[in-house]
Amino acid sequence: MGGGKKPDIKLISDDGLRHDGRRLDEIRPVRMRVGVLNNADGSALVEFGRTRVIAAVYGPKEPVQKFALLPDKATLRVRYHMAPFSTEERKSPAPSRREIELTKVIREALEPVILVEEYPRTVIDVFIEVLQADGGTRTAGVTAASLALADAGIPMKGLVGGVAIGKVEGHLVVDVDELEDMYGEADMPVAAAPDLGLVTLLQLNGVLSREEFSKALDLALTAIRTIVDLERKALKESYVSSE
């Protein structure tokens, strides 16, 4: 994140295209599949370009450790984890400081839409495993977890989607990848539930002016609306297409 010596390549070309040929406001090719795991109550695989994330949901259920229970609502337990093979150099499988933080922000991004009061004294486990990391893994993780929760049949007020906005060579770009994140000036992951008009995750790494910030948020919400529509399509496709 941030810093590092800038490579010789230009991240934005003179005709306004990014290093991978995308326009400034274009998201990477998205692929979503629901119900990819048999043992989980709900699961989803989400790809944003080369970023690939799998999410599995178990529950609501009675936990083994009873201290996790809350008397008035279900406990949401989230684990965001990057597989050792997900990065260019092997990542230690032990949870890092970063993963613990992302676990927390992802849990808080999902909790407002889930009707947790419907299942008091139970736990809902959400496992998010990054299989391949190329930037935007937390937002892909939120998207995958939201799909997996819907696949598990857990009541939700709406679906959540996520996208990261970046500032690269002075331009605001939608859905940053690893390279743009590393050498860009700013990175702002956003998750939202467009049906509810809720922004559930907002972080900012780097510096944006006030104008840039409000423009970035608009760009993010537009992209998230597209992503949530793709989620709906993926959920429906698990019943109709295949074969």
Binding site: V113, A150, P155, M156, K157, G158, L159, A193, D195, L196, E231, R232, L235, K236, Y239, V240
Partner: peptide, 11 residues
């Protein structure tokens, strides 16, 4: 054929 219209959370 589907026995109705598929609906997703939030619709």
């Amino acid at each position: 054929r589907l026995a109705g219209r598929l609906v997703t959370p939030g619709e």
